[in-house]
Design a protein around this nucleic acid. Structure first.
Ligand code: MN
Ligand code: MN
Ligand code: ZN
Ligand code: ZN
Lengths: 140, 140
DNA sequence: TGCGAATCTGCACTTCTTGAAGATTGGCAA
DNA sequence: TTGCCAATCTTCAAGAAGTGCAGATTCGCA
């Protein structure tokens, strides 16, 4: 995702308005590596801007996602996650604490795949589940 | 998933009752390659057994899943899918018609993965999205 | 055949997300 | 700088998927 300043430019260039709510979300998402949900962003946003609505958070995030500025991820954790990292990457979810981290996979062209015959695949996502270092230490 | 007859055995052996509702679901799921949702199974089940409740369908499928007889899959299609194929395999979803097919992947040990340090990974799932042969022909 | 635990049904309720409508406001034009 | 109006925001209702609960029913052993 581009910087708040660049997004401001881009929004205005496209005839979209730059509201305080949007700017706040630009800031909250920029460089955010937590893979937050709309709800958790709403919490953060509410601290700085009491009265902001959850609907606006959803709206803005979805808009950013459809502009390609961020990615919305369904990692099977209940709510959709928003990710400003739009590089090709995958994820690992800690099934105990819910922590999510980026995973970079290379060499997938060497995979032997059976069953995709005729399919025009537009996206491939790999999801790892398990216990994060902290949680696996605890459960020993 | 084992056959209806075998499941009947197994259920009784574990002190679980074998009801007509359960038997019907055993039959509907056995060898089912459609990756149905609870709702769609409820539709099918209702034809043969009017009055069966959606609650019972969910209950039975979840029970079978926790017994390891079938797998419940979140493929990002809204509702959970149930799969009697418990061999290690992955899936491809047609984003237009919703069709789901099995995908078998081998050679994944040759992948170069970065970001899993310290994680105790218990499951890896690969999801392909795209257009099935039929749908990609249509959209040409 | 009878009994009691297991199961089923019906329904309320939760969570996540979107639709709709009216109030508000950003940004350009004058 | 002011005013306008389309875009945006807030609020609230509602949809979709699933689960918890309670009372009615039934399987399966004695
Ligand atoms: Mn990420
Ligand atoms: Mn499958
Ligand atoms: Zn953890
Ligand atoms: Zn298709």
């Amino acid at each position: 995702m581009r910087s708040p300043a660049e997004l401001t430019e881009a929004f205005r260039a496209h005839g979209l308005k730059v509201t305080p709510q949007r700017q706040l979300l630009f800031r909250l998402m920029h460089g955010n590596e937590c893979h937050p949900t709309a709800e958790s962003l709403f919490q953060s946003a509410s601290e700085q801007m009491p009265g902001i609505s959850l609907r606006t958070v959803y709206q803005t995030l979805n808009d950013l996602a459809s502009m390609g500025e961020l990615r919305s991820l369904d990692l099977g954790t209940g709510a959709v996650r928003f990710d400003p990292n739009i590089d090709e990457h995958h994820h690992v979810v800690c099934d105990r604490c819910g922590d999510i981290r980026d995973v970079y996979v290379s060499g997938s062209d060497a995979l032997s795949i059976q069953g995709l015959d005729g399919f025009a695949v537009s996206n491939t996502s790999i999801l790892f589940n398990g216990l994060c270092p902290r949680c696996s230490a605890v459960s020993e």
